[in-house]
C-alpha cells in the first residue's frame, strides 16, 4: 500500500507562488473579494508562507509552501463529530463535503491551519465557470475544504495504468503544485517505495517536519536550508 508524501526543498523554493495558483486552478478554489481577503477569508490549500529574520542588510527569508501535511496521526479527524474528515488507506486526509456540518472543530484542531471554511458559497461569473475542472467538485457554503494531494489525479493515473496494463509510475501521479514548480522544489511520491525520490529525500539530514514534536507525524517533509 502506498503512503503518499511530499518533500519540499526550502533551498530551491523561490516563493513564486506558482504552486498556489496551480492548486487553485486544479481544485476550483474560488477567489474572494478584497474585503473578504482583508478579513482573512481567502482560501489557499497550498499557501506560500514566509519566515523573515534580521533587519537590513542582514535579512534572510525562507518560503514555506504549505499544503495539508496529511498527518499519519491527524488531529483533525479525531475531533470531527460526523466523520466528515478521514484518512484513507494510503494516508491521504480527505474531507466529505456533503457530510460536513461546518462546525470548524477540525480547523481549530489542526496545528498547521490548513483547513479552510467556506464562509460564503463560491462566486464564479458565468464565463469563469468554463475553466472549472470537472474532476473536482465545487464546495458549497458552510463546509470545510482542504488539500487532497490532488487525489482525483491518482484515480485517473490508476485507471490509465490499468488500461495500459502496467504498474503506476512515480511520474503518473503528481499533484498540481509539484507538477508546476519551476525549480522542482516540490517532490511528491510514495514514501515507502524505494524507487521514488521522496523515499531517500525524507532521510536526508536536512529533512524536517513542522511541529514534529506534536506527534502528528506529517507526511510533508521540508529540506532545511543550508546556511
Amino acid at each position: 500500500m502506498a503512503r503518499w508524501g511530499m518533500v519540499i526543498d526550502l533551498d530551491r523554493c523561490t516563493g513564486c507562488a506558482a504552486c498556489e495558483v496551480a492548486c487553485k486552478s486544479e481544485n476550483n478554489i474560488a477567489p474572494v473579494s478584497a474585503g473578504e481577503a482583508d478579513m482573512g477569508r481567502a482560501t489557499s490549500w497550498m499557501k506560500v508562507m514566509a519566515q523573515v529574520e534580521g533587519e537590513f542588510p542582514d535579512t534572510t527569508m525562507h518560503f514555506y509552501p504549505r499544503p495539508c501535511m496529511h498527518c499519519d496521526n491527524p488531529p483533525c479527524i479525531r475531533v470531527c463529530p460526523v466523520q466528515a474528515t478521514y484518512i484513507n488507506d494510503e494516508g491521504v486526509v480527505g474531507q466529505i463535503y456533503s457530510r460536513c456540518i461546518g462546525c470548524r472543530y477540525c480547523a481549530n484542531a489542526c496545528p498547521y491551519m490548513v483547513k479552510y471554511f467556506n464562509w460564503y458559497g463560491p462566486e464564479w461569473a458565468q464565463s469563469e465557470r468554463n475553466h472549472l475542472n470537472p474532476d473536482v467538485s465545487v464546495r458549497p457554503a458552510g463546509v470545510i475544504e482542504k488539500c487532497t494531494f490532488c487525489h482525483h489525479r491518482l484515480q485517473k493515473a490508476r485507471e490509465d495504468a490499468r488500461a495500459e496494463e502496467r504498474e503506476l509510475r512515480e511520474e503518473d501521479y503528481q499533484p498540481a503544485c509539484a507538477d508546476i514548480c519551476p525549480t522542482g522544489a516540490i517532490v511528491f511520491g510514495d514514501l515507502d517505495d524505494p524507487s521514488h525520490r521522496v523515499y531517500s529525500l525524507k532521510e536526508d539530514p536536512r529533512a524536517l517536519r513542522i511541529m514534529e514534536d506534536l506527534g502528528t507525524q506529517p507526511k510533508v517533509y521540508y529540506l532545511r536550508p543550508r546556511e
Partner: peptide
C-alpha cells in the same frame, strides 16, 4: 473549455515549469 495551463516540458527555456501568471 480550457481548464488548465501547465508547463510544456519540451520547452528548453521553461522545461515544464511556469510562473503563477502563466497558470492564472
Amino acid at each position: 473549455r480550457l481548464v488548465r495551463i501547465d508547463g510544456n516540458p519540451l520547452h528548453p527555456l521553461s522545461r515544464g515549469g511556469l510562473c503563477p501568471r502563466g497558470v492564472a
